[in-house]
Design a protein around this nucleic acid. Sequence first.
DNA 1: AAGACGAAAGTGGTTGA
DNA 2: TCAACAACTTTCGTCTT
Length: 306
Amino acid sequence: MAFVKKCPECGSINLLLNKDKGEVICNNCGLVIEEKMVDFDQEWREFDSDAAAQKRRTGAPMSYTHFDQGLGTDVGRKGDLYSLDAKSKNKFFRLRKWQQRISTAIERNLKLALSELKRVSSFLKLPRSVEEEASRIYTLAVQKGLVRGRSMESVVAGALYAACRRHDVPRTLDELSEASSIEKKEIGRTYRFITRELGIKILPSNPADYIARFASALNLTAETQSKSVEIIERAQEIELTSGRGPTGIAAAALYVAALINGEKRTQREVADVAGVTEVTIRNRYKELLSELDLESEIKKTKKKKE
DNA sequence: AAGACGAAAGTGGTTGA
DNA sequence: TCAACAACTTTCGTCTT
């Protein structure tokens, strides 16, 4: 599966996809990374339209973004129903009524929540795979009764945040907060809660994952981008990054890299797109300078300019 | 005048007794 | 459950360009 790249346990990239069981297994340590995956493949081949008509039997692929995985049917309320005689009509109305009663609170909740989830995810332009993952997480959360006592929207936001992190397409809590109009604190809290309760392992996000987005928001060149990734890697080697907020590190690395490549941005600008304050950038920046001997590089580009 | 810098006090979350 | 603690923020005054 494209969105699982590394084994969270041992870091190996040697992953084995077992389609029959719908699992992804780490070939190195044997950890089951993804299970209950949906098999999207056709299991037959079509040579002409006759064969296709015979063998095709489904509509859209099954998806967790539909509350019943896209398989549900409703008793119709319009269309050919009205061409029936009065007796049959009555029967259908009764059926419809029953269906509404049977629909449990869970299903109604899911229906609502997943449309909210879609709204937020399209607002943030998240990839399809993340949306799927978030829907799956939300569905699990509902089944475990974790939504009780929390607003539906906050759980949706938390699930989306978790899904982003798992797929290495990090969005900041601020962005999620803006898109879902839930407070940052609240999202963070439900995020921690559901990941703990569902036993979802999430690696601390890598500062480098933020670089591309921040850099394009600041109109920085590709050289600056790779420079800042390089800085981050060097910083990680000497454990300068542990315990610090990844966005602050990304911001500082980007700021220094821009300085080195003569594309200076103010601390304010960088701070805004990264969602941290100037002070944080300064602190990280100071550490980077003293630990990584970057001052000489900055001086070099200064001299070039003269 | 704007940006960079640093000190001090406050916030929210984690940890360990 | 509470206190200590680290990271980060807010605010504000000073220095540099």
